[in-house]
Simulated assay, not measured.
Amino acid sequence: MSKIAFVFPGQGAQYVGMGKDIVENFEVANNVFELASEAIGYDMKKMCFEGPEEELKKTENTQPAILTTCIAIAKVLEEKGIVPDITAGLSLGEYASLVISKAMDFKDAVSLVKKRGKYMQEAVPLGIGTMAAILGMQREDLEKALERAEEFGIVEAANFNSPGQIVISGEVKAVEKACEFAKELGAKKAVMLPVSAPFHCSMLIPAGEKLELELKNIDIKDLQIPVIANVHADYYKDKKEVIDLLVKQVSNSVLWEDSVIRMMEDGVDTFIEIGPGKSLSQFIKKISKKVKKQVITYNIENSETLDKVLDNLANK
């Protein structure tokens, strides 16, 4: 029996114009943007459709903007009768999964991720922390590079995205040294990333503590669709786990590769990436080659890609 997973991207996928033609063509998507504007107190359409890019790139704007675009598209799919068997999202994308699973109301989620973005940005002063992508290296070898770099400061694995792509995070000097050591130990490439904070490492624990206080103020309901959590690449057992796992997620590694493998093992053969960009689809293709699983990946970010996916699913 074929299973469908909805997967949602994280920060970095944004671009000016995202969601525009979906909103122009579907009332249900327009309603999502209207709700977002009400919840956060500024015009979400203007932010996503017009920018400017510098404003959209600010973490506290990026996170609600991407979440809004993802949910707007997902609601169109729901309206067309397409619902997932399982859902997961990368970092910020996990909030979209929780909204789709009915664990969290969209208005609560969009307000929450605006604050999450602000807390993550404020946790570490600008210039103190950074991130880098390490390409073409096994986890075990990267661990050795990180151990060697620890004498220069905090540096940790932040995202296990796909075979051969791991992102590290921490203090600038330690991250730079880890890149050097990774290359010495056989990494094909080590690229410093243009980010404003060291996400998904222990330096972000204070942001998680602030987020916890906000999470305690919202109504979390039973999950109607299984959601895989980034922190342990396993399913949320029940709504009682939501606060704990979302707090940990801020400062823990994102186990995306493991999450995708888990979904494949549980029978998912069709992945629909919903929202701006195609990075998750690319990761999933690499992961499927590694585990030798035949899967189909789609991405939906506008009306054209939506029509294509609807046609393909109708003909399956």
Results as ranks from 00 to 15, higher is better:
N25M: 14
P125Y: 07
E79G: 07
Q282K: 14
G93H: 09
H200A: 09
S303K: 15
R139N: 07
Y95H: 06
P194T: 06
K46I: 03
M44D: 02
Q63G: 07
S101L: 12
D244T: 11
M264G: 07
M192Q: 13
M47R: 10
M131A: 12
E147V: 03
E34V: 14
K102H: 07
M192L: 15
K80M: 10
F199R: 11
G12W: 07
I284R: 00
M263R: 14
E60V: 07
I40Q: 11
V260M: 15
L142F: 04
C48S: 03
A145K: 00
L213M: 03
L310D: 00
P226A: 14
S288W: 05
Q11H: 12
V295H: 02
Y15I: 06
D244Q: 13
E34K: 15
L35T: 14
E24P: 09
E53W: 03
N312S: 10
E34D: 15
V155K: 02
R148V: 02
R139Y: 07
I243F: 08
S196E: 03
L213Q: 08
K285H: 03
P163C: 09
A74N: 04
A29H: 10
I296K: 15
E301G: 01
M264S: 08
A5S: 15
E171D: 05
Q224L: 11
S91E: 01
P9V: 12
K316H: 10
V195N: 03
E257K: 15
G117T: 00
V195T: 09
E265W: 04
F49E: 13
K183A: 06
G129D: 01
F6E: 08
G127K: 02
E304A: 06
E53Q: 09
E265F: 04
I128Q: 12
S253M: 14
E257W: 08
L126K: 15
D21L: 13
D258G: 00
V113K: 12
M137L: 15
G89S: 06
D108N: 04
M137V: 14
I243S: 04
V291M: 06
I228D: 00
K57T: 11
K173G: 01
P163M: 11
A88E: 02
E53P: 00
K45V: 01
Q165W: 11
A88Q: 04
G41Q: 08
L146K: 00
F160M: 14
Y42I: 12
I228E: 01
L255Y: 05
K221D: 06
Q63W: 05
S288P: 09
K173V: 11
L98G: 05
S253Y: 00
D244M: 06
V113Q: 13
E140C: 04
V76N: 04
L126T: 12
S169I: 05
M131I: 11
E54C: 02
E273Q: 11
D258Y: 02
L211A: 10
A109T: 03
L56M: 09
K118L: 13
K188M: 10
K173C: 01
Y119N: 11
